[in-house]
């Protein structure tokens, strides 16, 4: 078995119009910038994939990554907990103009819905959101004297994640707080592709150190020195570069 993919373009080639795509990252930490930009390149040259539903904690920052996808018009709907950032202009303008849909989900509920999707649990009860606007219309139930809200699983057609080291079988380790949603999204998507800083042969990762087991990963592509979204934004980078 060898899950290596030769190029970023190949790694994102299967994503179709109207797909639901989970994208790892919390702010810039863990954002798979190169995979996202490869997807944008494909859209700009072929007009596909469009009308995407994107699941991420945020809704993009600046003019790179998810913000750049939104800016190019690829995204019909965001499912996220916090569509604000240092520079949320791209999402904000489209949202206020009614050009993009938003499903706002409390952060822990978002994580658990994704986990549930990956774990085969169609719904669960959480205290989060009970009695608030974000629970409006959802079933509630009492357990041991306390009220809980029913939440549904979240699944996706694809997940694009960033990891640190991966082996040919798809076993992954992460770098510091960059793991955030990635292990959950890897479980919840029908097809998960990881960009990794380093690919090693099986045995190259200590089994005790594996965070995401290869069964959850369908493909991996090497990006030896990945860009960091926060660094790009601090340098005012726009993707694709605007040539005057």
């Amino acid at each position: 078995m060898d899950k290596r993919i030769a190029s970023l373009a190949e790694a994102v080639a299967d994503i179709t119009d109207n797909a639901t795509v989970m994208i790892g990252g919390f702010g810039g930490s863990g954002a798979p910038i190169e995979l996202i930009h490869a997807l944008i390149d494909r859209y700009l040259s072929t007009g596909s994939p469009g009308n995407l539903t994107v699941i991420n904690n945020n809704a993009g920052n600046g003019h790179v990554g998810i913000a750049a996808m939104i800016e190019q018009g690829m995204v019909a709907k965001m499912i996220c907990s916090f569509p604000r950032s240092a520079d949320p202009r791209v999402f904000t303008e489209r949202y206020l103009a009614g050009q993009i849909e938003l499903e706002l989900v409390p952060q822990g509920t978002l994580a658990e819905r994704i986990r549930a999707g990956g774990a085969g649990i169609p719904a669960f009860y959480t205290p989060t959101g009970f009695g608030t606007d974000l629970a409006a219309g959802k079933p509630v139930a009492q357990f041991d004297g306390r009220q809980y809200v029913q939440e549904r699983w979240l699944k996706a057609d694809f997940a694009l994640i960033k990891a640190e080291t991966g082996d040919h079988l798809g076993n992954l380790t992460y770098r510091m707080a960059a793991r955030n949603f990635a292990p959950l999204m890897a479980m919840a998507a029908a097809r998960t592709v990881a960009q990794v800083s380093r690919i090693v042969a099986p045995g190259g990762i200590d089994p005790e150190a594996v965070v995401t087991a290869g069964i959850f990963v369908d493909g991996l592509v090497a990006v030896p020195t990945p860009a960091q979204e926060e660094v790009l934004n601090r340098a005012n980078v726009t993707y694709p570069e605007v040539t005057a």
């Binding site: 916090f82 904000t92 822990g108 606007d133």
Partner: peptide, 20 residues
């Protein structure tokens, strides 16, 4: 978490943190 219906709503982890 919200001062009303104007603008872009954002909740983050606030609703989770108040429970537990």
């Amino acid at each position: 978490w919200s001062t009303g219906p104007k603008g872009v709503p954002a909740v983050g982890g606030a609703m989770d943190l108040v429970h537990g």
